[in-house]
Structures are given as structure tokens and as C-alpha cells.
């Protein structure tokens, strides 16, 4: 019943894409223009027009994704086509260029577009890889459940540490109040926080001399270890969920850049005709 966007409707869009691409290649090989192949021949214009239309259509995906009310059909179909036609652009636009690259707006467009496509490939790779890993890492818990567990452990820690010396109480309070998940962008992506107050508190409690009741220390250590484990889980979860989104921070802005370059490219080609 569930079907990945890559195999959507028995690879409908892969087939469409392959047909288009093969057709383009055959035409390119068959075509023998005067001079070297370039964008200015009839085939060059045809391929260019096709590539430009595909690009505009691909960019429209962002709007389609958000039009919940008006559009019929499913987004998965669009996504499936988006992925395969996006890949087709690599071939179509390269053929359109006739392998002529230089330091100009046309080549800039080509590279901007390639960045978008490569980031998209990375996105698809992440989409394939992380969902199962996220499920595995969560181990049946939701974010909310993990946070609730942490709150419970925090309460226990607070209670246990009440009878202890000021220094330890301070340490534990910090572990409770200053433990942050996803402190900064880098830490979010790394999934580990080297300065996690919970880890620090646990290390300190284990390694340093302790004046209070040893039984309490053992209990505290076990609570802190448990909390660290959940924190690891949460940070890992956040890391993977961030990665599922992060590629979009390249994919989307570069899409706009590529569209701008595309418009300039078209304009300049006709202006300097």
C-alpha cells in the first residue's frame, strides 16, 4: 500500500525521463550542425527550451507543495516526477551547452543548476537513509515522551540531591536547568554536545571525591546515566531530522539563483543575437 516516490506507479517518471533523455541523446548524435554543437542550432534551441520549461516546472514544486486546498492529485506524484525530471536536466542542459563552458553567465547558470541538482540528490539520499534510522533511534518513543522522561528524571535528581553539599547541589541544578538540546547549529548537526551539563555532572560525580552518602551517589549516577542516554537519543533524533531539512537550505536558495541566472541567460542570448 505504501510506495516510495522513486518507484511511484512502477517507475512511471523514471521511464518518462529515460525516454526523453535517450531521445535527446539520439538527436544530439544524429544532428550534425555547422561547426561544433552549440545552443544556437535548432537542436540547441529545442533542448534549451525544454530545459528551461523543466526548470520552471521544477521550481513550481515549492508552490504546489503548499497549495493544499486547490490542487487535485497527490504530491507524491509531483515529487516523483520532480526527482526524475531534475536528473534529466543534467543530460539535457549539458547537451544544450554542446560541452562549451567558459567564464560567462551561461556557465554560471550551468553550475548553479548543478548545485541545485546535486543538493537534490543528497536530499533524496537523506530521505532514503534517515527515516528508518530515526525510527530505530527513537525505539518506540516520541519526542514528547523522551522529554517527559527527562523531566521525571530531573525531579528525581533534584530530590536525591537535596541533602547533599552546596557544590554538588549546584552541579545537579546546572545539569537540570542548563542542559540544552540543539544548542547551536553545529551542535545540532553533530548530534553531540561536548559541554553537556548532564555529562559534566556525571563525570564530576564519578571522578571527584564525594562527601555524602554513597548510596545516594550511586542513585544519582544511575539517574544521570539514564538521562544522558535519552539526551543522546534526542540529539541524534534532532541531528537526523535537521539533516532531512538542511539540504533544502542549499537547494531552495540556489534554485532562485539559478532561475535568476536562467532569465539573464535567455535575455542575453536574444539581446546579443
Amino acid at each position: 500500500m505504501h510506495e516510495s516516490l522513486l518507484i511511484y506507479k512502477k517507475f512511471k517518471y523514471l521511464k518518462l525521463t529515460l525516454t526523453t533523455v535517450i531521445l535527446c541523446i539520439v538527436l544530439y548524435l544524429y544532428h550534425s550542425p555547422i561547426g561544433s554543437p552549440n545552443g544556437g542550432t535548432w537542436l540547441g534551441y529545442t533542448l534549451g527550451t525544454l530545459a528551461a520549461l523543466i526548470m520552471f516546472w521544477l521550481a513550481w514544486f515549492g508552490a504546489r507543495k503548499r497549495s493544499y486546498n486547490k490542487s487535485k492529485g497527490n504530491l507524491e506524484e509531483w515529487a516523483s516526477a520532480h526527482v526524475y525530471l531534475g536528473l534529466a536536466l543534467v543530460v539535457i542542459s549539458t547537451l544544450h551547452s554542446g560541452f562549451q563552458f567558459g567564464l560567462n553567465i551561461h556557465t554560471i547558470l550551468y553550475f548553479l543548476m548543478m548545485i541545485v541538482i546535486i543538493s537534490g540528490i543528497i536530499g533524496v539520499y537523506f530521505y532514503l537513509k534517515f527515516p528508518s534510522l530515526i525510527t530505530k533511534n527513537r525505539n518506540g518513543l516520541t519526542t514528547e515522551m523522551m522529554l517527559t522522561q527527562i523531566t521525571e528524571i530531573d525531579e528525581d535528581i533534584r530530590e536525591l540531591s537535596m541533602s547533599l553539599d552546596d557544590f554538588t547541589v549546584d552541579l545537579m541544578t546546572k545539569a537540570i536547568e542548563e542542559t540544552v538540546i540543539g544548542k547551536s547549529f553545529i551542535i545540532k548537526l553533530k548530534g553531540v554536545d561536548p559541554d553537556c551539563h548532564t555529562s559534566l555532572a556525571r563525570k564530576h560525580l564519578r571522578e571527584k571525591k564525594f562527601s555524602g552518602n554513597n548510596k545516594i551517589r550511586e542513585q544519582l549516577l544511575s539517574k544521570l546515566t539514564r538521562k544522558e542516554k535519552i539526551l543522546d537519543q534526542l540529539r541524534n533524533d534532532l541531528k537526523m531530522r535537521s539533516l532531512l531539512q538542511i539540504w533544502l537550505y542549499i537547494h531552495v536558495p540556489f534554485t532562485f539563483a539559478a532561475l535568476a541566472a536562467l532569465i539573464i541567460h535567455i535575455f542575453s542570448v536574444f539581446y546579443y543575437w
Binding site: M1, Y8, Y68, G73, E76
Partner: peptide, 19 residues
């Protein structure tokens, strides 16, 4: 709504299905 359940139709990866 024409087209059916929007939750399923809005899923980009085919993860959501009504069965």
C-alpha cells in the same frame, strides 16, 4: 474536498496511506 484525504495527498514521499 475533491480528490480525497488531503493528509495522504500532501505526503511527498508516499509514507502516508489510508487503508
Amino acid at each position: 474536498i475533491e480528490g480525497g484525504a488531503s493528509c495522504v495527498r500532501a505526503c511527498p514521499t508516499g509514507a502516508a496511506a489510508r487503508v
